[in-house]
Design a protein around this nucleic acid. Structure first.
Lengths: 195, 195, 195, 195
DNA sequence: GCTTAATCGAGACGGTACGTCGCGTCTTACG
DNA sequence: CGTAAGACGCGACGTACCGTCTCGATTAAGC
C-alpha cells in the first residue's frame, strides 16, 4: 500500500550505524552525558543525517533501546501457577531495572518529559502499560483459573506489586534483590487468593 | 540550624533568593532544562554569586530540594483505627501530588535529577523516605495494636500501597480519585482478621 | 590571492562582515576595550563562528588591519623636484592621519595592539614600513638625481621628517597645518647645496 | 596651611606596599596582564583600599612609575658642547625606551587612551612634553651659545631627533642601538649649525 | 549504461549556556 | 576613622553542543 517504502539500502545502513553507536555510548556514558555530536563522531554518520532520521536525542535513544531489545529473545511468557508466574515477571523487571542500557534508565527522563509536554504525557502511559500489561495478563489468568478472587482490580494489584521495585529504582533506594521477590509476592498476593 | 557566624546578611539573602527561584524553575521546567543562567535571571542574583555558593547545577538543585523540604510542616499523623489512618495518609498524598506548591509535586523533577547527579541520587531517598516514614509508622502502630499481622514488612507494604497512586501520577494515567482510596486500601492492606 | 577551493561562500561572507565590524570598532573603541562580543553583535556573526576563524582578539585584529591595508590604494608617488615631492608625501600623511576612514587614523589603536599582542607586534612594522617606503623611495630618488647628499641614511631621514607630524598627532599636540609642512621640510631636509 | 594632611601613617604605608607590589608585577607581567586583584594579593592590601587611593589601573601604574623614578637619581643634565649633550639625552631616551618598567611602556596605552578620552588627550602632551623639554632646553642653549642657527624651531628639531627612536619603539621595529645615536645626531643636527 | 534524484559526509552557521575571571562597588567588623 | 576581608552585580571570556543549513560527492533507480 505504501508507494515507496525504503528501497534505498543506505538509509537502513545509516540507521544501523547510528543506533549501534548510540547503544555503545549509552552504556559508556549514560543518557545525560550522551551527545548527538558524539554519536555522529562514533558512528561516522553526519549530524545532519541523524537529524534527518530522528527528531532529537530522546527519540534517538528510545529507538536505540528498541533496537537493542529486538536483538534479544522476547521475554518468554512463564508457565505454571499464578504465584510463580508473578514472581518470574517481577524478577525479570528487577533485572531490567538494574541494567544500564535498558528502557528503565529512560523512564526518569520520560517521567519528566511527560510533565512538560502534552505529547509525552500521552505517550508515557502507552509505553509503560505495554510492559506492565504482561503482569496484568498473568493476574487476569489467575482470576480466570480461580486462583485469584474475581472481585480484585488486577490493574491495581499489578501496580501494588511493581510499586516497591519501581519506587526503589526511581528514588535510588538500595535495589531489590531478585531473590527477595518471592517473599514480596507472598506478602501482597495472598490477600487476593480466591476464597 | 548550624551556629554559623555569618556576619554578612547578604550571603543569606542571596542564598534564599536563589533557592526560591530554583524551586520555582524546577517546577516549571524540570531538572534537565533548568539552567543556572535562568536561575540567575529569575532570582536577580548574579551568576558568579551562584557559583560562589554552589559547585554547579546538581548541588544547587539538591540544596533547593532540601530547602523546600525544610519549610514543609510535617503532616500531623491522623488518629483512629489503622485502616482509616492509612486511608487518610494516602488521600493526603494524592492531594499533595496534584498540588502546585508542595514538594510532592516536584517528584518528577526529583526523579530526573537523581538520575543525572550524584548529589541528588544521594539526597532523593533521604527526602522520600522521610515522607514515607509517616505511613510506615502508621502501619507499625497497626502491628503493635494487633490490627495487622505481625509478620508483615511494613516498609514493603507502604510501597505497595503508595505504588498505585504514585505510578498513576508519574505515568499520567487517569488520576486516582481520593474517594477510591478506601477501596484500594481494602484490597491491599492485610488485616489480622483476613477480611 | 590564494587559490583556495572554498566551496562554501558563507565562509568568506562571515569573514568579511567580521573584519568590517572589527575595523569600525577599532576606530571607535581602540584595541583595549574592543570585545569579541561586540564584534559579534555589530557584525551579526555568531561568537562561535568568530572563534572558528580566529584564535582570539589578537589574531582577529591583526587580520582586520591587514584587510584594511589591502583595500587602500597605494598613494601614487607625486612627480617633480625632491623637496616638493617630500612636501606632498608629508601633506598626504597629515591628511590621512586626521581622516576617519583610513588606516592611518587607526595608528593609535595599532600601537596599543602591538604592545599587547605578539601577532600585532610582528605585523605593525610590516604595515607601517610599507607606507613609509614611499617617502624613502622619494628620498632615494633624490640621492640618485644628486639633489640630496649621497651619504645620508634615507630611512633615518624619513623618520626624522615624519616624526614631528606623527608625534604631534599621537600626543594630541596642536595639529600641524599642512601649509606649514614646506617650512618643516626645509629645516630638516639636507640638500646637496647645503640649503 | 592645610588643616589635616595625612596624619594617619597607615595611608602612607598602604600606598607604599601597593606601589611596591605594582612595580614588581609590572616587571614580571607587563602592563596588559597586570591585575588589580593581583596587586591586592601581592601587597596584602585590600582591593577597596586600592580603589580608595587610585581611580584605576592606569592611575596606579602611572603612580608606580613615579614612585620607581623617585628612587633613582634624576637624569643629570649633561655638560659640554651641544652636539654631545644631544647625543647624551637621546642615548638616555633610547635606554628608557627599551626597558620594561619605565614610563615608555605606558606610552602606547597613553596614546590610545588619549584617543578616546578628553581628559587623557589633555594630559598626554603634558606628560610627554615634560620629558621632551630637556632636549628642547639643550637645543635652546645651543641657539643661545651660537652653536645652532637662531632661526630654527627647536621644538620641531627635537621631534625630528627623537622621531626615529620613538617610532621604532612604537611600531616594534628593531630597537636603535645607543651606539648608533651619534651618527643619527650628526645626520640631522648639522643642517642647523650656525652659519 | 546513463542519467537523475535521493542520500550522504563534512562542516559552517546562529545560538544558548557553560563555568571562570577580573572589574569596581559595597558591607561588615576590627583596631 | 581607615583598614582587611570578601560578597556582590556585571560583563566578557573561550568552549561545547545544539539544531539548521549549505555544499559537492557518492549511489541506486528507473529510463
Amino acid at each position: 500500500m505504501r508507494p515507496r517504502d525504503d528501497k534505498d539500502p543506505r538509509i537502513e545502513r545509516s540507521r544501523g550505524c547510528v543506533l549501534e553507536a548510540t547503544g555503545e555510548l549509552l552504556q559508556e556514558l549514560g543518557y545525560g552525558p550522551l551527545t548527538i555530536e558524539a554519536v555522529a563522531a562514533r558512528s561516522g554518520v553526519a549530524k545532519s543525517t541523524i537529524y534527518r532520521h530522528w527528531s532529537g536525542k530522546a527519540a534517538l535513544v528510545a529507538d536505540a533501546f528498541s533496537h537493542l531489545h529486538d536483538r534479544e529473545a522476547p521475554a518468554a511468557p512463564p508457565p505454571g501457577p499464578v504465584r510463580d508466574r508473578v514472581v518470574a515477571v517481577l524478577q525479570q523487571l528487577a533485572i531490567d531495572m538494574a541494567s544500564h542500557d535498558r528502557l528503565a534508565c529512560l523512564i526518569p527522563a520520560l517521567i519528566d518529559a511527560a510533565e512538560r509536554s502534552e505529547e509525552m504525557a500521552a505517550l508515557a502511559p502507552q509505553l509503560v502499560d505495554e510492559r506492565a500489561q504482561s503482569l496484568v495478563d498473568v493476574l487476569d489468568d489467575g482470576v480466570k483459573t480461580g486462583d485469584l478472587r474475581p472481585d480484585i482490580d488486577t490493574r491495581l494489584l499489578a501496580d501494588a506489586l511493581t510499586g516497591p521495585l519501581v519506587l526503589a529504582r526511581l528514588f535510588h533506594r538500595p535495589p531489590i534483590d531478585p531473590a527477595d521477590i518471592p517473599a514480596i509476592v507472598d506478602q501482597i498476593l495472598p490477600r487476593t487468593a480466591g476464597g
